[in-house]
Amino acid sequence: MKWPVPRRSQLGTGALVIAALSVGQVLVDHLPSGDRAGRPFEHEVGVGQTVALRTGTLTVTGVDGARSVQPQRDDRLLSPGVIVVVTFDFTPKVPETTITYGQLRDADGRTTALGGARSAVSCPQPPVGITSHCTAIVEADPRTLAGARLTLGPLAIDERFDDVAVADLAISDRDVATWKKRTTPLKVASPTVAGMS
């Protein structure tokens, strides 16, 4: 049996392909990983403070909590943990944007995504320059709630590559104990746009 002998041009092409793959591998090894490169730009904010994001300004206006909350007149949520209600204002500076992404990170680093019937961000989309009064509701484990932080961003399905606000909710163990003792449901104001009733 006679083995085929490659031509010089075929050997050259093969060498070029191997060189290109090697260079590609070196680049991949030295570039940041997808997770790192796609990390959102986090802007710290406290309760009562305002932060400027790419899409607008966000002010955290209040934090409260209870075992039971009433987000609508006929609705009542009852949690085996504690339900945290965060109110915030958002004023967009680009058209057709609002805040729809939310994630709670507790003192143990565990995260809860806000999305669904029980944990959610509600924020109307106002015109540029007009302020929305918004709410975020999230259920959490009371044992690890003190020290929790809430991340808020513009896009519910993907927070990567964009500005997000990271709010230190300044929740203490004393707050959590008080919230657990509440016997009546905490009423949650419906989100509104400033100037509209």
């Binding site: 039971s68 085996p80 507790d106 565990r110 995504a113 999305g115 029980r118 944990s119 690890t144």
Partner: peptide, 16 residues
Amino acid sequence: VLADGTPMSALPPGLT
């Protein structure tokens, strides 16, 4: 959810 009759959504960590 049995306690309040509302549809369940994502399950938070650490709660039963």
